[in-house]
């Protein structure tokens, strides 16, 4: 029976694989478990996966101990890891083996395209992906890699255009919206990025990182004449604090910055903080200071020097 993976299990397994003792190799079962946890949790550890996984594939025991479907899954996983670390020769070898085993698979074609991308041959990669899309116009992997090709070429506007076309059809893909937002940010289109983060929040409101990014973008958009955006950002930072049970340092910083901006740049009535906001500012400042005191007291002076802490704390 399968288990529900947790981050602790992953860390423990990784630890055991890395410290296999006396220059010996990590036992096959541990490596298998590590690879499975990474697959299920969609965790990217290219160096470790490449190292342990490659050794696993090449060993003779692998043929015995791994059943057919798991063997090829691991091959694919290790191949992507090798592309991440840039070991092109090994990756090419695996791609050849996969093509031989699955001659008509679009999944293997995507891998071939990724290999071309890694070698810098963007034209060939684009050709491969367009061929996949000709046969199956709804292949999400191919769409996303087309966008990566544009990004790899440095053509961010083309990447945005491709991603927008993709999102026109697949509008509930939160990761794609997040990627589009980061593309917009690199093109300094803050407003559009903010819209994308809103979509992310709608799709997965229980994920605090989306709220954080949205709040950050709202704060960046706010100007002395549009401080209501900063107030909204305060709200979203509070959501993050609730979701993370008060432990997000990023959110606390964000809150203090926003409240400081409202207080110092606001004109007239808009600059007055409500009672809740004042209490919140004081609470965050207190908690931040306590945190720094505990974990790195050397930086406490820097924190105080930023000037965002409300006076009187």
């Amino acid at each position: 029976m399968g288990r529900l993976p947790s981050q602790r299990a992953l860390a423990a397994t990784l630890d055991r694989c890395e410290n296999a003792g006396h220059g010996g190799h990590a036992p096959i079962d541990e490596v298998k478990e590590l690879l499975r946890l990474c697959r299920d949790g969609k965790v990217r550890l290219p160096e470790q996966i490449a190292r342990h996984g490659l050794r696993l594939i090449k060993s003779k025991e692998a043929k015995r101990k791994l059943n057919d479907s798991e063997l090829w899954l691991i091959n694919e996983q290790v191949c992507y890891a090798l592309l991440d670390t840039g070991e092109i020769d090994e990756a090419t070898m695996i791609v050849k083996a996969l093509s031989k085993r699955f001659p008509k698979s679009s999944r293997v074609l995507v891998l071939q395209g990724a290999l071309c991308e890694c070698c810098g041959d963007y034209d060939k990669a684009e050709e491969v992906y367009k061929k996949i899309l000709e046969e199956n116009e709804a292949h999400q992997g191919a769409w996303k890699r087309l966008c990566c090709v544009a990004k790899g070429r440095g053509d961010e506007e083309k990447a945005v255009k491709t991603l927008k076309e993709y999102l026109d059809v697949f509008c509930t893909d939160a990761e794609a919206w997040e990627e589009l937002a980061s593309l917009y940010l690199s093109l300094s289109m803050q407003k559009q990025a903010s819209f994308c983060y809103e979509e992310c929040v709608l799709i997965q409101p229980q994920n605090p990182s989306y709220h954080l990014k949205y709040a950050d973008s709202l704060y960046s958009l706010s100007t002395p004449s549009t401080l209501h955006l900063a107030r909204q950002a305060v709200g979203y930072y509070s959501v993050v604090l609730d979701l993370t049970n008060g432990s997000s340092v990023h959110a606390k910083y964000g809150l203090l910055c926003c409240l400081d901006a409202i207080r110092s740049q606001g004109r007239g009535s808009s600059s007055r903080l409500t009672e809740d906001e004042q209490k919140l500012a004081a609470k965050c400042a207190r908690e931040l200071e306590a945190d720094y005191q505990e974990k790195c007291p050397a930086l406490l002076a820097h924190l105080r020097a930023t000037g965002i802490l409300p006076s009187g704390t």
Binding site: E137, D168, V169, T172, L202, I203
Partner: peptide
Amino acid sequence: TAKIKSIQAKQLIQRSQYLRAH
């Protein structure tokens, strides 16, 4: 092979549902 138009329709409905829920 799925048709793009029907996927788009389904996803639009899903997006609207997310909008209403959240």
